[in-house]
């Protein structure tokens, strides 16, 4: 199963990278979204995937799925969600201020004088 999931992880990260390298601020948002998918899946792979009973003592029985990556991913998802919301607002402000979604317009003023 690892090979399949690793391939999936690779595809997710590839797509995310592709989006992040675009000029459009909207595509940047999609890139951020995809990035969190890839991350979640990759960490999830670090548990033992052959043991897949729900880690709930009353309902399931051993071998449980590894609960630690699950807890880590939960934390990461929520943090990522906060980031996404923030990025959304940032993108809106970007569009509001610069009236463009072209990220290439963000040139920094570093003139050499003289």
């Amino acid at each position: 199963m690892n090979f399949v999931l690793a391939l999936t992880v690779g595809v997710l990260f590839g797509v995310s990278t592709y989006f992040l390298l675009k000029r459009s601020v909207v595509k940047l948002l999609l890139g951020v979204l995809m990035l969190s998918y890839g991350t979640e899946l990759l960490i999830f792979m670090m548990g033992d995937l052959s043991e897949r009973n729900m880690p709930i003592l009353e309902l399931g029985e051993e071998p449980f799925a590894d609960p630690i990556p699950q807890a880590l991913i939960l934390t990461a998802i929520v943090i990522g969600f906060g980031f996404t919301a923030f990025t959304l607002m940032l993108a809106y402000r970007f569009y509001f201020d610069l009236r463009t979604e072209d990220l290439d317009q963000m040139v920094e003023e570093t003139e050499v004088h003289g």
């Binding site: 960490i43 548990g47 980031f83 940032l90 610069l98 963000m106």
Partner: peptide
Amino acid sequence: QIKGGIKYMIINLMSSTIFLLAIGLTYG
């Protein structure tokens, strides 16, 4: 501030992601 903020945010997001992945792999 917005211009700088986007760059700051996205590139640091890369950092966090790579760090998080490294932690995940470390646990594995």
